[in-house]
Amino acid sequence: MDIYEEYIESIIQMADQAIDNGQDDEAKRWFERGLCEEPGSAKLHFRMACLLQYGLDDKARAEQHYLLAIKFKPDYRSAYVNLAQLYLDNEKYVGLENLMHKAMKVEGFNKTFAYENLGKVAEAQGQFNKAIAHYRKGMMQALENFDVDDLKDHIKRNKYKRLKKRWKLWQREN
């Protein structure tokens, strides 16, 4: 491990200790110090984003740090996953859709996860056929039975919503 990595790990260790002691603001200061010295550290940006998202409830700044982590390390899969959850929780569907398309280009990224999130975007926008198509693509990529079961449930829910939407349209016309 080089001196750069040792420094980053020591900052993370001090911040983790502060978090363990319930001192989230102190942890934030440790990450800020580290980022002043190493502004291009994807790992520090990622850890700062996690603290902001889950500890300090600062979603906007968490998003910025996740994006910086991805900028400095484009294959940082954990940053994609956490940012996707942040976007989904805050109904930022355009951002989530763009992120998942970018993530699918990352070698080794979980395509099932990406297609599931693309399906959720389409579903939230009332595009049930598109959602079903994404969920089906996700099923083809899935390697675990529980993933397939979840995707089948998503498909069933979207078929119901599609039917309900058609029924309401039919009732208005008649």
Rank of each mutant, 00 (worst) to 15 (best):
V121D: 04
A60I: 05
K105A: 15
I11T: 04
G55F: 08
F113V: 06
A133Y: 04
H65N: 03
V81S: 07
A42M: 07
G55S: 06
N174D: 13
E123K: 09
D75A: 00
L44E: 00
A133K: 12
K92M: 11
T112N: 10
R47V: 02
F146H: 12
D89H: 11
K164M: 15
P74G: 05
A142K: 05
E107A: 02
K71Q: 15
G108M: 13
R157S: 08
K159H: 13
K161A: 11
H45S: 08
D2G: 05
L67K: 05
A15N: 02
E123N: 04
N174G: 15
E32D: 12
L83K: 13
L118E: 03
G126C: 02
M48Q: 05
K71T: 14
I11P: 00
I19N: 01
L44G: 01
Y66S: 01
Y80S: 03
K92V: 14
L151E: 06
E116Q: 11
M14A: 15
H154R: 15
F31I: 01
G55C: 10
D147N: 13
W30F: 12
L163P: 05
L96Q: 10
E97M: 11
A124Q: 12
I70Y: 11
L143E: 15
I132T: 13
K28P: 01
A133M: 11
R47D: 01
L52S: 00
D16M: 13
I155C: 04
I8T: 00
L44Q: 02
A49K: 11
E37A: 00
G34L: 01
L163T: 14
Q127C: 10
G126E: 04
N90R: 08
M48N: 00
D147G: 13
L88P: 01
M1G: 08
L96W: 11
A79E: 09
K164W: 14
S78K: 05
N174L: 14
Y7I: 00
A122E: 07
S41K: 09
L68Y: 05
Q171L: 15
Y135L: 13
M48G: 00
Y80L: 05
K165E: 15
D89E: 10
K105P: 08
L35Q: 04
R162Y: 12
N90A: 06
E63V: 07
W167A: 03
A84H: 01
K59W: 07
I132H: 07
V106C: 06
Q53D: 10
